[in-house]
Design a protein around this nucleic acid. Structure first.
Lengths: 213, 213
DNA sequence: CACTTATTAATCAAGTTTGACTAGCCCTCG
DNA sequence: CGAGGGCTAGTCAAACTTGATTAATAAGTG
């Protein structure tokens, strides 16, 4: 699973209706172009693909309000909302070892009821534990771990990473159960999108360069 | 950078000369089909691509020794050896947040001299630190971190993961400096490939299922 | 006003990845 | 003996990602 669908669907969902450039701008605002494959080509491709699959409805619209070729506006469908929740649940609950998917999911976690978010994260913990166990078993040959030579370091890396993922997940569960943030059905949601015409303080070429290679 | 070139080049290099199925088997032996994109299509594609680029030399060979269509054998060229080292150095030294690349690199780390391996890992540490700093700066708006709502959890995740990566890297450096493993120019290298005809105990369909989804 | 430069909103080609499929050969079971 | 299952080695189409490029308009400049 790649993060792009979750991100693009989520962006359109928060607006209700959006054109490609708007989605692109939101994702840039979230910094997503730095840590995921949310580059223009991928975004426009995902929009078209999801429109073809009925998750979005495409409306041709006259010349844009600010120069450039005419825009296509996309509106989210019921199927699209359902798919977004499905992707979100999957991303939160499965150990995927890809941080971009998890990051995107965390960005939308408050779209779920609080109790469900916690339950999904617990599911994640179970997956992590199972993975950790299977890694240690797989990489333990009959002759003892010394048999492996430096290859054992790969296992070491994974176990380390599983443990770190576990600790982070536990921390998040604790904060959510402690009442942090506003979840679905608990009042005004936190919305992180740019209004039409609002300038993006974290735009691509800015001096605030961020993520690594 | 994807891990596939590093893996495939490395596999051919360890044999000196290999056909696609042999590479595929080695990567399966290493468990790489579980944690990287080392699936048949990608492997054969990478072989062809790298042959076109002069990193490998392709020789057509008569029907296989054990049924099936004729094999194409690939031999690594000087350019291929150089490219493998280049990819390896890059994978070890840059913070990439993709565990598959790092895992593959760890598998080949002993191809380098011990001192260079340590230096590259230190470079990695510097990259990690820089990234951690930029993340905390990027995600600290004027109004204080409370401004971010649940979005701050994304930063939390990254910082956590950077710290875990730092700890693992430090541990590895320590073990290498402590004399662990046999590096380039230090005697008989550890070679983890299957000999021709040797059965693969970790083959795809085996009951020893491993990595997560 | 004509001409250059920037910005906005996409599109395109090239390269990758995926998952399913083909086709030859061997072995076994009835 | 021959039908089917399984292994070997690989191909293929479809989807996805990437980076470059295009087109349309707006804004500045002499």
């Amino acid at each position: 699973m790649s993060a792009i669908r979750l991100l693009v669907l989520g962006a359109v969902k928060q607006h209700g209706r959006a054109h490609g450039y708007q989605v692109r701008n939101d994702l840039e605002y979230w910094g997503a172009h730095e840590w995921s494959s949310a580059k223009p080509g991928s975004i426009y491709h995902a929009l078209k693909q999801m429109a073809k699959q009925g998750l979005l409805r495409a409306d041709e619209i006259a010349p844009s309000t600010a120069g450039g070729p005419p825009r296509v506006e996309y509106e989210i469908t019921e199927a699209g909302r359902a798919e977004h929740l499905r992707l979100l649940r999957e991303a939160l609950s499965t150990y995927d070892q890809q941080m971009d998917v998890l990051s995107a999911a965390v960005g939308f976690v408050v779209d779920l009821p609080r109790a469900e978010a916690v339950e999904l994260l617990r599911e994640r913990l179970r997956g992590l534990d199972a993975w950790r166990t299977s890694v240690t078993e797989y990489y333990t040959p009959e002759g003892g771990p010394g048999q492996l030579g430096h290859i054992g370091e790969i296992m070491h890396l994974w176990v380390h990473s599983a443990d770190a993922g576990r600790a982070w997940t536990l921390g998040l569960i604790e904060r959510i159960e402690g009442g942090a943030y506003t979840f679905a059905g608990e009042g005004d949601p936190f919305v992180g999108v740019l209004a039409e015409g609002q300038e993006n303080p974290y735009a691509t070429g800015g001096d605030g360069e961020t993520a690594g290679p």
